[in-house]
């Protein structure tokens, strides 16, 4: 066997070659640039911790963090809420709802569409005096005057958050259904025989068994949500309008680097974003670990 083990190295070599060149090295290079005033041309001047000092007092970075969490919060609440309701509905063995395949496909559809196209589409659908959504709402009598959705910080953040939920609830619904079908039918039937009502089945059987998969949804959604870029970049002016309310962390990073040529500072922003991600992942993992211990 020994003579064959060198093949292990051969098989994983291409991966690690590419991994080190295009992932590890850029991460280290970015770290180096975060201590310089690199402007994309010429030499990078070493300026110590100045970029990080600036980051700690940069109200725009804090604003970007706040916006990112705000948008993600709305997104996640509705995404999980709707998906959970749907999953409970379709898993109810007394109701026996039909058409799961159809609904699943239709609800999933928005998730497949390129985010850039979605941003562009809603950018014009949500227009003020000439937007189709306002026209529709006026026709239906839901509003009496056109709302400038993308020009007010609150409605703009809600719009982006809800668009995100619209794109993702179908995806989450599929995952939750997968989780439920992993739960043995016996549990539900046993609950039925024991005379448990709907509420009891839900709180004692379905939800506890779904908890791990909901945590999985939480983590993937959070890591993705912290990196939200396409929607805020393309739905308004690309600089976070209105009033900086759509200025997310990655958008801020992008603009500092590629719009204003502050590559050094943008590198520090990237590491700021990284620290925040690590912190959140740590908190979530910790709560998941405790859960596992309890179950075990």
């Amino acid at each position: 066997m020994k003579r064959l083990d060198k093949f292990g190295y051969i098989f994983i070599a291409p991966f690690f070659l590419v991994f080190i060149t295009f992932t590890i090295y850029p991460i280290l290079l970015t770290f180096y640039y975060s201590f310089t005033s690199y402007s994309g041309r010429g030499e990078a001047e070493f300026i110590g911790l100045a970029n990080y000092a600036r980051l700690l007092t940069d109200s725009y970075f804090y604003q970007a963090f706040y916006n990112t969490m705000y948008i993600w919060g709305i997104n996640f609440f509705f995404q999980l809420g709707i998906a959970l309701l749907l999953a409970i509905l379709f898993s109810d063995i007394r109701l026996k709802m039909k058409g799961l395949g159809f609904f699943r496909a239709v609800f999933y559809l928005p998730n497949l569409i390129t985010m850039a196209s979605v941003a562009l589409l809603f950018g014009i659908l949500l227009g003020w005096h000439h937007g189709t959504i306002n026209h529709l709402l006026l026709d239906l009598g839901i509003i009496s005057q056109p709302i400038n959705w993308l020009n007010d910080p609150t409605t703009a953040r809600w719009s982006v958050g809800l668009i995100g939920a619209w794109m993702w609830f179908g995806h989450t619904f599929i995952i939750l259904m997968a989780g439920i079908s992993g739960i043995s039918k016996d549990y539900f039937e046993a609950a039925l025989i024991d005379g448990a009502n709907r509420w009891q089945t839900l709180t004692r059987v379905t939800l506890p068994l779904l908890k791990p998969i909901m945590l999985y949804v939480l983590i993937t959604s959070l890591i993705g949500g912290l990196q939200i870029f396409d929607l805020p970049m393309l739905i308004t002016d690309g600089m976070g309008a209105p009033q900086g309310s759509l200025n997310t962390m990655v958008l801020y990073l992008y603009n500092q680097a590629f719009r204003f040529d502050n590559y050094g500072y943008a590198a520090a922003v990237a590491y700021g974003l990284f620290m925040i991600t690590v912190l959140f992942s740590f908190i979530t993992f910790k709560s998941m670990y405790r859960k596992n211990v309890k179950e075990g």
Binding site: H129, H130, N134, L138, Q145, P146
Partner: peptide, 9 residues
């Protein structure tokens, strides 16, 4: 002409 304030009081 363009559409202006549909419904604006």
């Amino acid at each position: 002409k363009i559409n202006y304030n549909a419904g604006w009081d």
